[in-house]
């Protein structure tokens, strides 16, 4: 893609204006990219740790559930767990990181009722299993939030990098070369004009010597 313009002073002025704007935009976007990368590195570590921790906790919870299932049959289990013991509500807020909107969740865990199932007819393993599961909840939701943040930031970094590169390697060099071509043309016109005037002057002098 080449910028095609007519070689006039007006166009030259406009091209220079566009180049200035492109430089400004490039600088701003570059700053944005740097800041995004900095933010990204601060959360990536916490994400890694959180992921590992949650997976460990989940495994513990799964194995406790296996224990509970080993002492009850499926029907009993599904009857006991027909009603949830807790109600989870998420309060969502948006955090703004370099104009990327990132949802932040506040988890409210509410006990609906102390005992949705009978403690007598169910083994204590079930209580333990539910307990371990409820310990995971807030970490699990936290993990989703951080993972989402990492994803959004990564996407934004990619987009910003493309824009910076487009400005740096395509837009700015093309504008510069267009400016060069136009100013060379204008200079050339000026020189040819000057030569023409000189020639005319010579002819005029020769035709009527004083």
């Amino acid at each position: 893609m080449n910028i095609k313009v007519t070689a006039t002073r007006m166009q030259l002025m406009q091209l220079k204006k566009r180049l200035k704007l492109a430089y400004k935009g490039h600088k701003l976007l570059k700053d944005k990219q740097d800041q995004l990368v900095r933010e990204f590195f601060t959360i990536i570590d916490s994400y890694k740790n959180l992921r590992k921790q949650v997976e460990k906790e989940l495994n513990k919870a799964y194995s406790s559930m296996v224990l509970a299932r080993s002492v009850m049959n499926d029907l009993e289990l599904s009857n006991a767990l027909f009603l949830p013991t807790k109600k989870i509500s998420l309060n969502e807020k948006l955090k703004n990181v370099m104009s990327v909107r990132i949802p932040i969740f506040k988890v409210d865990i509410e006990n609906i009722s102390e005992q949705p199932y009978s403690k007598i007819s169910t083994p204590c393993e079930l209580d333990i299993a539910i307990d371990t599961f409820s310990q995971v909840v807030s970490d699990l939701i936290n993990l989703s939030q951080v993972e989402n943040e990492v994803k959004l930031l990564a996407k934004e970094i990619e987009v910003t990098r493309r824009r910076v590169n487009a400005l740096e390697y395509i837009m700015i060099p093309e504008l510069e070369s267009a400016i060069k071509i136009v100013s060379m043309k204008i200079n050339e016109l000026e020189r040819s004009n000057l030569v023409r005037i000189m020639k005319i002057k010579d002819i005029v002098r020769k035709s009527n010597p004083q």
């Binding site: 559930m65 949830p84 013991t85 807790k86 109600k87 989870i88 998420l90 599961f133 909840v137």
Partner: peptide, 22 residues
Amino acid sequence: ILSQVAVIGDQDTVVGFKAIGF
């Protein structure tokens, strides 16, 4: 829809989450 959070999975995985309100 009862909750804002859901789990998709096999029977063994999902059963524990049901108890805690997913």
